[in-house]
Amino acid sequence: MSCVLELKNIGFTYGKGTPFEKRAVDNVSLHIEQGEFIGVIGHTGSGKSTLMQMLNGLIRPTDGQVLLDGRDIWAEPKKIRQVRFKVGMVFQYPEYQLFEETVYKDIAFGAQNCGLQGDALDRAIRDAADFTGLPPALLDKSPFDLSGGEKRRAAIAGIIAMNPEVLVLDEPTAGLDPMGREVLLSQIVRYHKERHNTVLLVTHSMEDIARVADRIMVMNKGRLALFEPTREVFRKGDTLRGYGLQVPQITRIMQDLRRRGLDVPEGVLTVDEAFAALLPLLQKEGKLW
């Protein structure tokens, strides 16, 4: 495996030297391997979005370095635009960056800037719309006439169409209906499996991240509080609660059962795992068919 992203002691202060000075990210160092699926969680205001925006050069760290494929992305500030094609960033509330006349043109925007044209561009746009579950009939509509969830899909499709090496999604499922979340989440997983690209997913849904991430970064007050495999992170319920977070409901249910002396496994993360663990126990009791 090779390291795709390395952060060396990076930090960011908003409004340095003003009365509004705010240390949003403080001294974060880490390695991310090519092809990893990373979850990013943390209380509101913990610095997740600020940290993500430093990964693609949208904001420049006030301290430290961001290395992409071993190279400091700010070594040549004039080339920072290229970093934005390699590290595709779906912003929090991306729907407010829609501005073209039609959804189709909006999705095309980034991919065109990456040099795609003609049939290849058309295919990338339609694939991306399909990927996010956006019905083809909406492509000719104005982005302003879509519902909240539909706008979100259009905005994500615009980044997917660029096929970035590292895909960063900042709360992409916030505001989607349950099936929309489910579909988008499984599409992201599929994208990750098929293209072997690195994915970073910021979310407030512990249930979702528990199902998909290899490793999880936990941010707390601008610092990287934990960066461990998913199961390890969700073993630390008390620590997480101290950071304003939680473990998934299903994990809590199984923990409670254990605490009451029932012989169920530790560290269950999904409903499917819980189901598989309970099935034989209930069968033994003669409670099932």
């Binding site: 969680i41 943390g42 209380h43 509101t44 913990s46 929090q92 909240g148 709360e171 916030a174 505001g175 407030h204 512990m206 609660r241 304003g244 977070l245 939680q246």
Partner: peptide
Amino acid sequence: DEPTAMLDPSGR
């Protein structure tokens, strides 16, 4: 209208 869409678990 979806007041907790962007909140962390304890904020929600």
